[in-house]
Structures are given as structure tokens and as C-alpha cells.
Amino acid sequence: MQIYLPIADLPVDIFLVLAMGLAVGFISGMFGIGGGFLMTPLLIFIGISPAVAVASVASHIAASSCSGVISYWRRRAVDLSLGLMLLAGGILGTAVGVWLFTLLRSLGQLDLAIGISYVVLLSAVGGLMINESVRAILREQRGKPVALRRGGAHTWVHGLPLKMRFKRSKIYVSAIPVWGIGFIIGFVGAVMGIGGGFLLVPMLIYFLHVPTATVIGTSMVLTLITMASATVMHATTNHLVDAVLALILMIGGTIGAQFGARAGQNMRGERLRLLLGLLVLAVGLRFAYQLVVQPGDLYSIRQAGAE
């Protein structure tokens, strides 16, 4: 059944979009990520412009994250104090990202910038995650002990000032890297339509040594608020949020996230990271193919000043 999207200005199959929302919501709940790294390319692949896809997907990510946060909150797997500190940097990063998004759109370079950013970011992150998870699985199969975090282990991050204690995560670190990580996630989310969970989770684990038990739920709290903020900013600044598209994605994402959160409980961490790495790398390679392949129409006509 076809439905017309007023802002995207094209008809789409409502069941296809709903299925996409369900699938990405499931992945979001399973891996503790926003799912925008997958949803935004999927919308672009079915013909929706990158600008509308990025702006509209933010609302889908917020809805999926809200559903996931409720699930993890019930299991007391959310460090609220850490989430609030990340949020302080995340809101600023979101505002800067929306500003850059608007600037690139006015210069006519937004589509190219989004495509290149996806190729570089997803390929690099996916490759690193696959390498790390494969090495962890091989160590496990050979019977070698997995390198666990030692209580006395410190890096240069732990030597920074303005230290704070986060009781739920059992860490004592400076607020500076926490703010910095939040800023990066908010910025990337606003420019690329990515919730940033696939970046935030490894940052919290490897830089701040946040326990895996609380990292996913805490990640989803930041994703929820930054993506809700990005939705409002994009709607008021660029007027690119397609409410019809966003509503369909939100319905599918909210339902899918609940099933994904349950499925993620039954898988080992190394295998979860391997699956996520493969998925991230595959999307990055698909974007690279789209950038270099010759389009069906070598020329297009559009009104001056139109997106």
C-alpha cells in the first residue's frame, strides 16, 4: 500500500517502511544503539533525499531508544548520573552539528558530505570492531583468559582534573572526557542521523572502563535525549522532518526494540560485537559502492535553490 510523504515528496510502500522500522528497532534494542547508521542509508537507498532521511530518522532513533531505556531501567542497568554528564556535552554537540548541517545544505554539499562521512566512519569502526571481537573469540577458543579490567589500571584519561565518582558504574574519572565523548556523539548524530551508540559503547568501555552491565542502558539514555533534541532543532531550523515518515518508523522501532532488548540478553558479548561490526562494515561498503557507481541518469534538472 502506497503512502505519500509530504516533506520527502514521494510515495513509498507503508509496509516496507514499517518493516524497516521493526528491523532497525530490533537491532537497536539488541546492541544498545540508536540504529540510525542503518536506517538513514536504508531510506536513502529507497529514494528519500539524505537531508530528509537524516532529519526524520532522529525521531525514530529517539522512539526506539525510549523503548529500550524503559527496558534497561527496569533491570537497574542505567547509570543516570553518568548519562546526565554525557548529556551536558551531547546537547552542545547536537547544536553545533545542526549548525554545520544547515551550512552544508546552503552550500549544496550536504549529500556528498553525508555519503563520504558514512563510508569513512562506518568502514573504520566496523573494521576495528570485527578485529577486536574475532581476537576475543579466538582467545576464548584457545582457552586463554580474557583480559579483564583491573581496578588499579589507569590511563592518561584518569589523570585529568575535575574528577567525579559514578557509583552505579563504579568508576572515578574526570568530567572532561565524559563531556568530550557526549559532544562527539551529539555532533555525529545531528550531522549524520546516527544515534551514536555504536561509537559511544566502545568509548565508554575502552576509555572510561564503564562496566558492560551498565554501558548499554546508559548509552540509550544519551541517544534518547540527543536525538529528541536533534529532531526539534531540525524541524525548527531546516523544516526537513517528515512527520508521516517519522511516525511510521517510530511505531516499528518502538515494537522492535522491545524484542531486540530481550534477544540481546541471550548472546555473549564477543559475538554481539562481531555481528555489530559486520553490520556496520557492510553498510559502509554499500555506501562506498553507491558513491562510485555510475547513476542511471547522468543528468538531473532541479529548480535553482531547491534541495
Rank of each mutant, 00 (worst) to 15 (best):
G152Y: 10
I44V: 05
L274E: 10
E140N: 11
T231I: 05
I61R: 00
V188T: 03
L249A: 00
P50A: 04
L87G: 06
A62E: 04
M1H: 11
I225R: 00
L92M: 10
L200V: 00
A153H: 09
S123A: 09
G152V: 06
F37I: 05
V98P: 02
L279P: 04
G32H: 09
L162T: 11
D13V: 04
L87P: 03
G29D: 06
K163N: 05
G90Q: 03
E270R: 13
R165Q: 02
A63I: 09
G195F: 00
V292K: 01
G182T: 04
Y4T: 06
V241T: 09
V69I: 10
H209C: 14
T212D: 01
L80C: 08
G93Y: 02
G264Y: 05
G21F: 14
H209A: 15
R74Q: 15
P161G: 11
I176H: 08
D9G: 09
Y4D: 08
A95Q: 14
L138P: 09
N238R: 08
K167H: 12
A282K: 03
T214P: 02
T102V: 03
S71V: 15
V157G: 06
S81M: 08
Q2T: 04
T237K: 09
Y4E: 10
G25L: 13
A282F: 13
I225T: 10
I70N: 09
P295L: 07
S49H: 10
I301W: 13
M30G: 07
I194V: 14
R150D: 10
R150I: 04
K170Y: 12
V221S: 04
S117M: 14
M39Q: 07
F15V: 07
I91W: 07
G97C: 14
L112F: 15
A246V: 04
K144Y: 13
I33M: 05
V52E: 04
E132T: 11
A95E: 15
T94A: 15
A136D: 14
M220H: 05
V283N: 01
K163R: 09
I248S: 13
G196E: 01
D242P: 00
L10F: 01
F37M: 11
N238D: 13
G89D: 09
R105A: 08
L16Q: 06
M1L: 08
S56D: 01
P6H: 12
H154E: 15
I301Y: 13
L110V: 08
H158M: 12
V188E: 00
R105M: 05
A53E: 06
V188G: 00
M30L: 15
Y289V: 11
G182H: 03
